[in-house]
Each structure stands twice: as C-alpha cells, then as structure tokens.
Design a protein around this nucleic acid. Sequence first.
RNA 1: GGGCCCGUAGCUCAGCCAGGUAGAGCGGCGGGCUUUUAACCCGUAGGUCCCGGGUUCAAAUCCCGGCGGGCCCGCCA
Length: 488
Amino acid sequence: MSVERAFRASLREELLRSGVSPYPHRLSLGYVPIRDIVSNRRVGEAVSTAGRVASMRRHGGLIFSDLVDDGFKIQLSLDLSVVGNERFEWFIKYVNLGDFINVAGDLFYTHKGELTINVREYCLLVKALRSPPVKWGHKILDTEVRYRKRYLDLMMSPQVRRIFEVRFNTIAEIRRFMWERGFIEVETPILQPVYGGATAKPFITRVHSLGEDWYLRIALELYLKRFLVGGFNKVFEIGKNFRNEDIDVQHNPEFTMMEAYQAYVDYEDIMRLIEELISNVAERVLNTTKVNYPVGGSEVEIDLRPPYRRVRMVEGLREFAGVDVEGLSDDEMKSLLRKHDLLIPGGYDRGRAIVKLFDKLVGEHHLIQPTFVMDFPASSSPLAKPHRTDPKYAERFELYIAGMELVNAFTELNDPVIQETYFRNEEERRKLGDAEAHPYDWDFVEALEYGMPPAGGLGLGIDRLVMILTGQTSIKEAIPFPMLTRSM
RNA sequence: GGGCCCGUAGCUCAGCCAGGUAGAGCGGCGGGCUUUUAACCCGUAGGUCCCGGGUUCAAAUCCCGGCGGGCCCGCCA
C-alpha cells in the first residue's frame, strides 16, 4: 500500500512539475452524464463525459477501459492510431485505476456489441493516490471495512449503492405522500432540556452558554404535539432520534423516524393512513408491493398491500401463544413471567407484564405479514388515550412486519389531568429503578391545559422500513454510516 | 451483561491442530499483445501475522490479558 501510494504521489509530483494539474478546477472537454449517454444511445455521435477509471484492459495499441459516473458505466476504447503516440503513452504512464478523467469521443458498438466511446481526447481530472480496494462490481467482504469506509463500499458495489438509492427515494416518497395529504413538515429541537416521547435512555450533552446539561431527543412526539396545541392540524417531521442503548441488528443509537400528528382523527384513521403510506411508498420506490425478506433462514414473500391484519394484543397472545392473560390472576401472571425469565424494571405492573409476554412469545416469531397489534395495556402507554370502551387498555397500536416493529401510534392523550397522573406514575417507577421511565414534562402538561385537539399520531422507523424494502436483516446495512467503536 | 466465530500483503484467503527462513490468487509496478470486459502471457515489488505480556534455544502458530468486528441470547422500541 505505502509503496503504491508513494508511486502515485510521485506521479502527482511529476504532473505538477510538467505543468499539468493533477486536480484541475474545471472540465475542459465538456460533460454529459454517462446515465444520459447509455439511456439515449446515438451511435456515431460525438459525446463528452467524465468519471472514475474502474478497469483497464490493454491490447498493445488499444486500451479498453470502464468509466463509472454516478453509478453508471460505459466502456472507453483508446486507440493508438486515433489519439497518436504521445497521448497514448501519456495515458499509460499517468492514468491509473481510480483516477477521474474527462473524455471526448465518438459512440460505437464493439464486435461484442458493447456501447463504447472511441476516445479522441482525454484529460486527467483527479489523480487518485490509492487504488480501488477491489475490482469494480465486486463486493468488499470485510464487514468492518464496509461500515467504516462506506465510501469504498458505495464506490465498488452497485448492490450497496442500490440500497441507499432505495433509502433516499423512500424518504423522498414519504415526504411527498405526507405533503400531498396536507401535512406540513416542521422542525423541532434536537437538543432538549427534558427528553420524552418514548421510553429510552438519553444522550446527555453540555450546553456551555447556559451552563446546563441537556439531552439529545429520543423522540419527536412532545414538540410535534405542541404544534397541535398551537393550531397546526397536520404536521410531520422526519429526523434523527438518539437512544443511548445497545447496538444490534435492529438498533442503532442514532436512527431516523418520521412522526406525524393529525387533529380530529383517531388511531383507526391512522392505521388507514399508514397502510396507504407504506404501500404507496413501496409502489413508487420498487414498482411493487411485494418484497422478499429472509425469515428464519428462508425467503418469505411479504405483501405490503392493504388491508393489514388487525389483532388486539390480548387476542394475539391467545392465538399465537395460547395464553389468555385476561383470565389470569396477578399471581399467575407473575409465575408466567418467572417461567420466561422476564423482569419488569420498576416492579410488577400488570400492563407491562402483558406487553413483556407479548414481545417474548409473539412479536418476532409470528408477525411476518404486516399486522397491526392493537390496544396495549394503558399502563404501558403514558402518552396514549385510554380506550373508549375499556380504560384498562389504551388506543395504541404497533405495526409489525417481518417480526420487526415499524410503527407505534396512538389516539393521542389530550386530557392534561390524566397526562399528569401518568407522568407521576412514571416518576414513581423511575424511583423504583426503571431507568427508562418517562420523565415528567411540566411544560408539556401546561401546553395540554390550553387544549390540544383530539388527534391521532404515529412514529415510523425509517431505517427498518428500508430494511424491509431492501431485504436486509441488519440495520447497519440500511444506514450509510452506522455507529461503530471509534478506534480501528 | 452471557455465549460462539473471526483478525496474516491493497483485496480474498492458506499456513496455526502437531512451534523451526512469511505463502497463493487477484490487485499494483515493468515488459508483451489492436475487439477486451473477472482479458491473457512473462517478470517483479509488496508484511506492525490486531496489540501487550508469558512459555521456549526458537512463537503467525502454544498460554494469559486486551482491542476491533460479526452473529446469537439477555436488555431495549
């Protein structure tokens, strides 16, 4: 490596001495994207383009080379009899794999039928001091290198590039969908004096000018609801959340959520909104609502077309685990928890116990096709409105796909007195050892006291949606620069 | 927090079990070759064997500790 780098650095020096810039400011030969050239083949026509030299195959006085530009590739041929001896030799001496060049020439098809630019002129644009780690189109296999130096992963592998094209198209389509339905995209603070909107451990950061420790947000929820109080009826935000918890195949400490809140609707309306959103986005991004996803070692076809199955949490436990929690006494619940090695931080609570059992016995294993799990126990949902027919439950649901939780949504709690009670309960649980209990947010309660319209809201994990749409089982594959330990 | 696997050339890996001169292919560089596309042929350079300690005449190899990565479980939305 160091030998090769030194060699290329010496070429750079030679170029500078000879008055040729190894990093010119502008393209001297013009530029049409390779994407446009290959999609609009006009054989015989003169074209100019630019890109990275991805391969070279020399046959005496003829060099075939592949030029890659913005994910598209075209073959060049450099013919000694066309460019002349001097420019031919210069190319061999000074142009290496990984360099960027600007070329002008004529389009033709080779004997093998490949569209090729017969180069008349060329110009070096960038002298790369390091060569590409693998041949273009081949995957780097060392996962650590792929994550730490994602630019190489993107550079070398069209499949990896494709994942991120899907990711950013997905975000664009979500945005378009929400705008089309009249939602306004807003911004809320990432740095917050009180975190909230989810149960998670936060990152703490120092605000020097205030002399205070603040938090990086763990959710968007409480500030978006303040928009509802302020009179906005339909708002959404796409942004990063930060949760100071474990890193694994479904969790990255920094991850992307879309949250949306709509006045005058309930969680039933939100279910329909989500069905439309996800199927619409899949259709737009993939041209299909059917995706293949590995589940338990084999590919399963998942159909994102509505309607999605709706199942109450207690019914799910009955159907998939054979447990009728509504018929169990607290003592029976506790022994069931013990049997499955489940602990409840902050002490036993019937609602939380039901959720624990559901997560353990049902969640990942059974909910492969899109399924709304409805009606969580009220005590597990301090920001959701109690159920209209049974206040032991909350009007809350989660959407599961491929065993992953993608969406969490409620009919939003807008009674400030109940909200205050829930916050107090959470504070009590915190004192009893539940580090992830929801903090008390006085200002939010005060906002509710001014009146928040009845509303439905949702949070969608975008990284996980991208995993589903691209068939990836690790969230690191769906995040461009996933979090890894600093050192290498 | 627990378990399993991995770390050797730019890349992919062999060598480790059973200690004795650091290897191959690809890539790089030099040469040859005017229709190749994982081009081909000849030659050649390239090493902190993840780090530290121990055992030994001798450690990539055995032992201990650490670091980094992957996966599974626990915890967690």
